[in-house]
Structures are given as structure tokens and as C-alpha cells.
Design a protein around this nucleic acid. Sequence first.
RNA 1: GCCAGCUUAGCUCAGUCGGUAGAGCGACGCACUCGUAAUGCGUAGGUCAAGGGUUCGACUCCCUUAGCUGGCUCCA
Length: 599
Amino acid sequence: MSDQNQQPYELSDLYRIRHTAAHVLAQAVLALYPAAKLAIGPPIDNGFYYDFDLGLDDDGRRRTFKPDDLPWLEKRMRQIIAGKHPLVYREISAAEARQLFHDQPYKLELIDELSHSGEPISTYRQDSFEDLCRGPHVAHTGQIAPDAFQLMSIAGAYWRGDENRPMLQRIYGTAWPHKQELKAHLHMLAEARQRDHRKLGRELEIFILDDEIGPGLPLWLPNGNILREELERLAREMEDAAGYVYVSTPHIAKEALYLRSGHLPYYEDEMYAGMEREGATYYLKPMNCPFHHKIFGSKPRSYRDLPLRLSEYGTVYRYEQSGTLMGLLRVRGQTQNDAHIYCAESQLAAEFSAVLALYRHYFALFGIDKYVMRLSKHSKAGLGKKYVDDETMWLKMEDLIRQVMISENVPFVEADDEAAFYGPKIDVQIWSAIGREFSIATNQVDFAQPARFDLTFTNEQGVSEMPFCIHRAPLGSHERFIGFLIEHYAGNFPVWLSPEQVRVIPITDAHQAYAAELTAQLRATGIRAQAMVGSERMNAKVRQAQQMKLPYMLIVGDQEMADGTVSVRERSGIQQQGVAVAAFVQHVKGVVDGRSPHL
RNA sequence: GCCAGCUUAGCUCAGUCGGUAGAGCGACGCACUCGUAAUGCGUAGGUCAAGGGUUCGACUCCCUUAGCUGGCUCCA
């Protein structure tokens, strides 16, 4: 990614620099904490990290790095770098390796794995520090620019990412060939903070989070609610055209429903605890599907009714781990662009492709050109635990999706052990302008729940048959998608999405009546407009409207009042005076109706 | 959930060595009536996240809790 030439990152000089920087960091840490146990220290995007186990302190608590350690370690690293120590490679036997790392339990675990797999075991040594490593590295430590790396943060990290294993201390660093690139990277991080949806969400009055409401439960302000409504309108138009019908379902249901759906056995950890009333236990719904299944099953269905596409912007609640909550990206209550398509097995492929077409339409509309589709599959080990126990079906459905993706020419990657409990799925990952990943859309095949709900239809032969179900959510949830859009557009929403499309700014009090009349006229045509009264000077009003990133400002004074025109200032700063009101309205309507990505 | 850090006015942030708080913006009021990114003056606004402890005295030190932020296998 950060590589200018075409060679893969793993073979680049930068990869070597970062890898060696990680070793230098480890050497520095051993100088500060001689008893530290080393885990792993790989290069990563933009830098490197190294994981350490610092042992226990005098009170028997796990010792941790202190923020003050970082400057000390950086200084020590520069000393090591200045020594221009060569990186010396050698291959050793497993026995030698065990001897060499006899007091390094994490290394011993790695050595065991390596010796089992038969891979060669090697080390790199610089100065007095020798580390188990396959490389590659730079020739000597002097090849790391002392002013082009920086230690960034301290974090806890489980050994091998497994929460049942020890919590290690991780230090993240960033490293670059030259000082300029480091500065550019730090600058980019600062820019990203400006564009963060949490910051813009507050500044543009889109949503807030309130401690007393609860973590991960956003409140949508009037501006944010307009974004939701516009997205729902869009979805509604697309789905009407694609033959969906709309339903509405409650937010809670009795235990029995989730026992039947399988959510309670498979998904309980992610559900809010039950509420008891008159001997019955109710749960907040973590998914909309069981409700839609009930609607499908509410009357006898014929093959003529299929595919039946039930759609709902449904609100679901999931108890996400507190540490994973983040702005609108990971929340505990969200409203999903949900639908369930019930169809015969023979219709599955066609329906799956139709949903993919919907995705492509949305991506084009929002200018999302970088995305990855993941085919998330079951794992053999998870059958009967995380996944319904029917391996034949899993393999069959995974292959069906694979074939559709191939025939539709949609690039995708495959991931084991990431499916829903009721079937395999396609997940779509997109990246906002600041590089944050958003897993938004999902498209799942369900062969388990229709059986659990005894769903049937009568086929052409008059025989009862079980339908399949496709769960799909191309626009994900409002929370995630709007979080994405805020960063994607940096708050400069296209006009059709802009909560306030036009702000009318009178130059003096004498022009207020004209401004009010204009605003009423604009509103009558469906344009979201507001007059800005108040005693600030016009300049201040313009500034405020710019800060709110409003697409159009209409400035009206004597001139405009006299000839019934407006002076148009676009968000970009472009101005045009003496514009006829009708012409302006026509322009805005055109841009809005076409959902133009530009002004 | 786990690790670390943070939490001072609506927002962004100062606050020295422990002696009970400040600024800018915003809000409100008054004056100004102005041509494309900040008019001036004034007023109000704080249980320093919450609870407990140490101390003559705590925003400041210690403990607990809550919330937020960065992380939690881009494999030696």
C-alpha cells in the first residue's frame, strides 16, 4: 500500500526497515525491562509493533508500560540505530533454538510449531540482541532513519489474539524511509481526525451519544434524521422497482420465538437480557428475520407467491462488547436496511444476483469504488455450536454463492469460520476517505430457519416444499452507513442528502421580509431551506453556513429585492449574482431529483 | 470483556508545588443595519464525570464505579 514500485509489501525495503525497527524496539525494551518476555513483532501497514510480557510487579499485578516509557525507548532506539549494527542471519536446529530461547516461553511455543511444520528455524542478531525471526531485515541498523520513526501507542493485546491467553503489552510504532514521509503520515492522521464521523456528527448536529441513554445508543438530531429519511426514500424507490413489499414488526418478542429461530441457543451472548412480565420472558430483537418468517408463515403460500420479498427498515439491539463500541460504527441499537427473500431453491441464484445488482447501483450512486466482497463460510469445528449442523447443506450453499459471484464477475475473497449461524453469506467491506473500514452490506443464504419455522409453500405439483431465504441489507444500518457517508463526503453531502439545502441570508434587517418570502417559496417546492435572521453581520452568517457545509447560500439585499433575484453562493465559494428565483429552483430540483453527486 | 490513557461551562481547551476555577467560541441582552468565512459592549452559565478515602484544606494524591479514546494474531 505504501509501496511505490509494484513489488509486494513483504519484499519491499520499507518492510525490512519496519521489521528491523521492531527488533530494535525489542532490544530497547530489554534494556528498560530486562525480565521482559518477547512475543512477536511484525511489520504492519504504516509501521510495526512488538508484543511483550513484562511479568508481575511487586504487588503481583501484571506490569505494564507507562506512557513515559515511550520517549525513553525512542531515545534508546536511536542509540542502537547509530551503532550501525549488522543484522546477522543464521539457521539453527530446533534443539539449538530451544536452548537459545530457554527462558522465552512465547518463543518456545513458536519453535514447537515451527519444528512440527518442518520449516527452517532462523534468527537475526543485531548488537547483543538475537531474535527468532525469518526476516527479512535491512543490512544494518543504520539503515533505519533515526528521524523517520516514532513510537505511537501502548495497547493490551492477547497472545495470539485469544482472550483466554495472557494479555501482553504491545507497542505500536510507525516507520518510514525519510523524515518527510513520517511527517506526511502524521499529517494524514491529523486530517483523518478532522473528518472523523464522531467529530463531524457533533459539529453538523447529526447525532449525539448520551451517557444516560446508554453506550452505543445514538440519538438522531433533526439533521441526522433527514439523512435517514432520504436513505429510506432511496431504498423504497429501488425496492418498489425490484418487487419488494413492506412490513413492520415490533422491537420485542417472547422467548419462544428466539428459541425457535435459534437465536437463543446460538446468539444469546449478543442479546440484551430477557424481561419478565406475567411469567413470560421477552427479549429485544437482535435480528428482524424471525418476525418476517412469521409473516411468511401467516398463511398458506403458493409457488405463485414466490419469490416473496419482505422489506423493513427494522431496528435491532445487540449487546456488543463495551470495548468494541465506536461512534456510529459499532453500536448496540441500529436500524437495518433489511429484507428477506423467500424463494424456491431454483430461484436462489437469480435472486442472489438481483441483490448484487442492487449493491452495484448503490455503490455507483455514492461513488464507492473500493470495496471487497467476502464469502464468509462455516468451519467444520463450529458445526453444531456456532453453526447449524448440516455440513452437506453448508457446502452446497457456499458453492451456490461462489458460482453466482463467478458468473456475475464480482471479485471476492473467501473466509472460513465467519458465517451466520444459519448459513453462508457475502459481506461487503468498504473504506471511508480516511481509510477506516466499514463492513456494511450483507447478503446471506439461510437454509436453517425456514425449517425451524416450518415454512412451506405448495409447488407446481401440489406438493409442500420448504422455501429458502435470502437475508440482505445492501445499505447496512443507518448507523454504519451514515457514519460512513459523513467520512466519505467529509460532511459535504450531495444536495439531495443535505439536511439543509439552502440558507437564505438577508444583508440587513430591511431584507428580512424578502428572505422570509423567498424561503417560503423554496419550501413550497420541496427544497429544504431556512432564512437566517439575527443581528450578526452578513459575513458572520456566511461563515456559519460554510461551517455547517450547506450547499447553497442565497444572499439578498437591495439589489435582489429590486429585481426579484438572488445572489447564489455555493459551498465551493463560487458566486453568481442576479439569478432569477425560478432558475435557481429549477437548478436545485434538477440536482436533487437526479441525486447528483455534485452540487 | 481485557490492557492503557482520558473526563474542568453547551463546544474546544488553560489551570504551576494541594490553598475550593479561567479563556475563546456558542447562548442571552443592548447597540450597530452592514454585499459573500467572525461588528462592538455587556450578562448568565461549573457539586472540576460519580462515589469514597488521605489531609487543617483535594480539580490536583489514593481507591472504586461510569463514560469516552487507542488497541486486543495484517503470525517467529
